[in-house]
């Protein structure tokens, strides 16, 4: 009985973990859409952030969503 439970637990864990998928760089088209930003008005916020970046001379740490390698 214990063996069966362990096996079932293992299978459940395997199925659960196999649901985690790595999104490859070429599959990020949908993720790079501004609609994916956790914001009520993502495009408006992006424009405001752009102005702020230039005015303050600082960029980053905003959780900004974009396509590409993210290394730029």
């Amino acid at each position: 009985m214990l063996k069966k439970l362990i096996l079932m637990g293992f299978i459940f864990l395997w199925v659960w973990l196999s649901g985690c998928a790595t999104v490859r760089p070429w599959e990020r088209e949908s993720l790079s859409d501004p609609i994916m930003i956790m914001d009520e008005n993502p495009i408006d916020s992006g424009v405001k952030q752009h102005y702020l970046d230039y005015r303050e001379g600082s960029v980053g740490a905003t959780g900004e969503q974009s396509g590409g390698c993210g290394c730029g």
Binding site: R24, P25, W26, E27, R28, G67, G68, C69
Partner: peptide
């Protein structure tokens, strides 16, 4: 259909 990038396993865009 993104058939070519997996052949090269690129890890960022652009590569």
């Amino acid at each position: 259909e993104q058939q070519i990038p997996p052949k090269y396993q690129i890890n960022g865009m652009p590569t």
